[in-house]
Structures are given as structure tokens and as C-alpha cells.
Amino acid sequence: MELYWKAAAAALLAVILGSAVGKQEKDISMLLAVAVCGMVGSVVISYLEPVLDFLWELEDLGRLESGVLGILLKALGIGLVTHIAAWICADAGNGSLGAMLQMLGSVAILYLSIPIFRGFLTLIQEILGAL
């Protein structure tokens, strides 16, 4: 849990230093925020790793169809990255860019989900055909 405290301290430190630097150099203050977001993001990922391993174990245990969990995890990854990037854009005063990025994330997740929707459609056709 030491990383958690370090990440929280780093975020607070970045806020203080960012506000000190931001009066003169807004661009560098924004880049400082990006750097800390990246650092905290890598801490988030290090905590997520065992959780995801556990999910893979659960998939094996439940003998789920292979690929379904992978798509869900990819969607989670896209969601995380999109959310962070969109907030950074909004903080830097580019709200429209952030909104566009969120739309890109949503569409990318939809694109990734096509095999699941197709499988669902096939299942419905099989059920209807069996009747």
C-alpha cells in the first residue's frame, strides 16, 4: 500500500508546484499535470494487475467462452485512457477536444464489442430456428 500514499503525495505536490509554476508558465504546469497523471496511472495499473489475473482465473474456472473477457478488458483499458486524456484536455481548456476524445473512446469500445453483438445475434437466430 506504500505506492498509494506515494501517489497521493505526488498528486498533492504536483498541485502545489503546478499552481506556483502556473502563474507564469501555464503550459509547463499542464505538462506537470500530465506527468503526474501518467505516474498515478501506472500505480493504478500496478494495483489492477492482480485483479485482472484473478479475473482470468475466474474465466478459466467458469469455462467462459474465450475472447469475451479479453474484449471486456480492452474496453476497460480504452475507457480508462480516454477518461484521463479527456479530463487533461478539459483542464487545459480544450473541452471540445476532450469531448471528441470521449466520443472516440465510446466508438472504439463499440467497434471492439461487435464480435459479442454478433455472437448474441447468432444465438438468437439459433433459438428462433430451433422453435
Binding site: 501517489a7 505536490l13 503526474v36 501506472s42
Partner: peptide, 11 residues
């Protein structure tokens, strides 16, 4: 490990 020095470097 977290590279806290990066924050100080940028600041």
C-alpha cells in the same frame, strides 16, 4: 517504483 524526481524536475 514512482519517479517523484520527475515532478521536481518539471517544476
Amino acid at each position: 517504483n514512482m519517479d517523484i524526481d520527475l515532478i521536481f524536475k518539471i517544476a
